[in-house]
Every structure is written in C-alpha cells, then in structure tokens.
Write a protein that binds this DNA or RNA. Structure first.
Length: 266
DNA sequence: CTAATTCCCTGGAAGC
DNA sequence: TGCTTCCAGGGAATTA
C-alpha cells in the first residue's frame, strides 16, 4: 500500500524524468477514480517546474497550475517509453517531449488525478492538513491534540488534521516502537515525545529502504519500486513478538485492524 | 463542534 | 475445480 514512504520514493523516482520536460498530451482510459479525472486539463505545452509532495499527494507544478496526484490504495506511477501498450488498470498517461511517459496504474481506483490553478495550499484537499511528520511535527503539538480530543491514540495519529502521512501500517509500527497501546486515550508529554519520535524513525527507515529499490523504478515489466517492509507487529496476529515472544494481538479500531504486543506496549 | 460510521473499488485468500 | 464470502485500506462524505 502506498503510504508516505512509498509516495516519497515515487516522487524521487519520477523527478529526474519529469523536471523540465514539456507535456505533449495526456490520455485518460478510465476517468472513474476517487473523483472523475477532468478531461479538459490545460496540460498540453506545459513545462513541469517541480515535483513536490504534501502528505500523500504528489504535486506536479506546471506553468499554469498544478497536477495533483494521489495513489489511493493501489496506485502506482511509472516512467515508460511512449510505445508500451496499456494494460487493464492503466487509467492515465502523461506523454512528454523527452520520449517518456508517466503512467498511472490503479486497480482499485481510490486514487486521484486533479488539476488546480492558483495557490495549491488553498485547495480544499490540502488546506486543512496537519504538519508533515518529518518537518514541523513535534511532541508539544501531539500533546496539545491528545488533551483536546477524546479518541484512541492510533486514530489520532492517523487523522490527517493532526499529522499527515501516517497510514494504518505505520501507525501500528510506530506505536510498538513507542511502547504505547493503540487504544490508549490519555498520554503524557513523555509518551507523546516517544511517539512523535517513533513516527519519524519509522517513516525515515521506510524511506531509506525504498531508496535501495529506486533503481527498479524505470522498468516496463517490473514493479514501480514499492518495497516489502519488515514489520514488528503489523499483520503478525498470533505470532510471537520479536522482542519478548508474547503473541501479537489484533483488534478493530474504527473499522481498521490494529496490532500490538500486550507485553511491550502499555 | 466532535466522534463514529459508511462508502468507493478490485484482487487475493479462505471457505464450501 | 469453481463458486461465494470476506478482507484489505485512504480518506471524504455522511450520520449520530
């Protein structure tokens, strides 16, 4: 699943192929993603100025506006030669003047391709987002939020208004590293500090792991460079904790699975 | 306002 | 073997 590290890895993989390129045209094969892909985006002739990431959104900034991309649950972006035939779930292509194209594949169609002109931070999807976890996010901010809300800590750190980019997998992993149970509601400043640090550590480690697979990014037959992460607790229900051997527990929180070690996490 | 729930979608695994 | 059922998840939209 593309979480923040996968999106960042994708951004780094795409950037050298996209920056400075001119958009010749685009193709929409199936516009039914999270929202319909606008058919009238004025992309033709635009030069790609930068490729940034905000939360899990990729922002492809052009002369006249920004192409907003989201990978949803199953989306991937690849750079391919122009003549590679599209397969079943290849919904959107961006054709460039350098002989390459960027292709979006998204079987479950939870992703998005949108166009926005003007200040990108004011876009409705971006304007209410909380801090980036690897930038301005810290213990004080988390502690203040914990005190002002009455929800389980796991759901809090997955709330994009609190901090962006923490998906279901890394939420469980970060809570394990911090020694905090996912259902906890009261958390002191020290606990918040451990958790904020664990979130940063977890995401950074995953981004670093992704870097080693970047060489596979441009590959017509291979995968787009996502990577298998070694998980402490996620998906390991009933298996022994790698720290203490206690069986990992699985619970439901807000229709999502959470995993934790009942001995290591209090 | 906050918190909880529903919904979009397909592929893969499990069950019969 | 082939069907049916369940589950996964981002996050906006909806409901309580």
């Amino acid at each position: 699943m593309p979480e923040l590290p996968e999106v960042e890895t994708t951004r780094r993989g795409l950037a050298p192929h996209l920056l400075g390129a001119n958009i010749v045209s685009f193709a929409i094969r199936n516009d039914r993603l999270r929202w319909p892909i606008p058919g009238d985006m004025p992309l033709r002739g635009q030069t790609i100025q930068s490729l940034e990431r905000r939360a899990k959104y990729l922002l492809l900034k052009c002369d006249a506006g920004t192409l907003i991309l989201h990978l949803g649950m199953s989306g991937s972006l690849r750079i391919l030669p122009l003549d590679v035939p599209a397969e079943k779930h290849d919904h959107f292509d961006l054709l460039l003047d350098n002989g390459k194209m960027m292709r979006l594949r998204d079987p479950r169609r939870f992703g998005a391709v949108l166009w926005h002109e003007g200040d990108i931070e004011s876009h409705p999807l971006l304007s209410r987002l909380g801090p980036e976890p690897l930038e301005s996010f810290d213990a004080d901010h988390l502690y203040r939020t914990v005190k002002s809300r009455n929800v389980a800590i796991k759901q809090l750190i997955m709330d994009s208004q609190v901090v962006v980019g923490v998906g279901n997998i890394y939420a469980s992993e970060a809570l394990f590293l911090a020694g905090i149970r996912p259902q906890r509601r009261n958390l002191g400043l020290a606990g918040c500090a451990r958790l904020a640090e664990s979130i940063k550590t977890t995401l950074k480690a995953a981004i670093d792991a992704g870097g080693s697979t970047l060489r596979d990014f441009v590959n017509a037959s291979g995968n787009p460079g996502y990577f298998q992460q070694q998980h402490w607790v996620y998906g390991r229900s009933g298996e022994p904790c790698m720290r203490c051997g206690t069986p990992i527990r699985q619970i439901r929180q807000g229709q999502r699975s959470s995993f934790y070690c009942p001995n290591c996490q209090k």
